[in-house]
Design a protein around this nucleic acid. Structure first.
Length: 286
DNA sequence: TTCTTTGTTCCGGA
DNA sequence: GTCCGGAACAAAGA
């Protein structure tokens, strides 16, 4: 699942290949993403020159000279790769492809003047992209409601405590709320609570500040490590088309129901919180 | 056929 | 009105 670190790595990788490049044409194989692509999506992109790329939460933004931009969300299975057919160069830009690419899910192909094709592949089509005018930069509905970035200074223990004491919800629900902190998904919340020895079923207003300090520290550490790891694993993907990557995510608790805890003798339990799979060790997460 | 998966929105109960 | 959890939704694969 593409989470914040994956999007950050994607941004960095694409930046190298897209900035200052001009779009020659766009081929849309399937416009039915999570939100149907506008009919003029391709024609709007044509001849646009890319200025820079940014990330907000799990959204990737591609900015054009002149100020218009596209907003992208990868959903559950969306990813990008770059292909330079002339020299058979293949670059996996999206961090986590383990399986062979099924071309039938190549929904959008952007042909760039620099010879690269930027390809968007999304098996379940929960991802989306939208074209926006410059004037929407400060009023974009997807961005306007988001809380602080988890890696920003604004996301600290005092901030979290002030919100936690006002609410009567589970700590996991608090962290999953994008208005509280934006960009943490299910996997990283599970992992961060495990590292911090905090039970996801605890009420957020019952957790003392000491614990919150540890939690904040771990969230930042896990995200940073993951970004670093993603950055280095990307290199292994600069291969000829078809070569598989070997990157494996090493989760401490996520998806380990009924297995032995990596920290103690406990067994990892699985419950649902906000309809999401939640994993924790009953012994070390008090 | 049914279940799982994520992020967001909507709805109803307390 | 406010707070909270559950359902629904998007699509595909097991």
């Amino acid at each position: 699942m593409p989470e914040l670190p994956e999007v950050e790595v994607l941004k960095k990788t694409l930046t190298k290949f897209l900035v200052n490049s001009t779009i020659k044409k766009v081929r849309i194989n399937n416009a039915s993403l999570r939100y149907k692509l506008a009919n003029n999506f391709g024609s709007k992109l044509r001849y646009k020159k890319i200025k820079n790329l940014t990330r907000r939460s799990k959204y990737l933004l591609i900015h054009f000279f002149g100020g218009d931009y596209i907003l992208i969300h990868l959903g559950m299975t969306g990813f990008f790769y770059l292909l330079k057919p002339k020299d058979k160069k293949f670059i996996n830009a999206s961090f986590y492809i383990n399986k062979k690419i099924n071309k039938k899910h190549n929904h959008i192909i952007v042909y760039l003047k620099n010879g690269y094709n930027l390809i968007y592949n999304d098996i379940r089509r929960f991802g989306f992209m939208k074209y926006y005018k410059k004037s929407t930069r400060k009023s974009n509905n997807f961005l306007i409601k988001l809380g602080p970035e988890p890696l920003s200074k604004k996301f600290n223990a005092s901030y979290l405590e002030s919100l936690a004491k006002k609410r009567n919800i589970l700590i996991k629900s608090l962290l999953m709320n994008q208005k509280i902190v934006s960009g943490l998904g299910n996997i990283y919340v599970n992992e961060a609570l495990y590292y911090s020895k905090i039970n996801p079923l605890l009420l957020c207003n019952k957790i003392d500040k000491k614990k919150l300090i540890v939690l904040i520290k771990n969230i930042k550490k896990i995200l940073k490590t993951s970004i670093k790891f993603g950055g280095s694993s990307i290199k292994n993907y600069i291969n000829i088309a078809g070569n598989k990557g070997s990157f494996q995510q090493k989760f401490k608790v996520y998806n380990r129901a009924n297995l032995k805890c990596k920290n103690c003798e406990g067994i990892i339990k699985k419950v649902k919180i906000l309809q999401r799979a939640t994993f924790y060790c009953n012994t070390c997460q008090k």
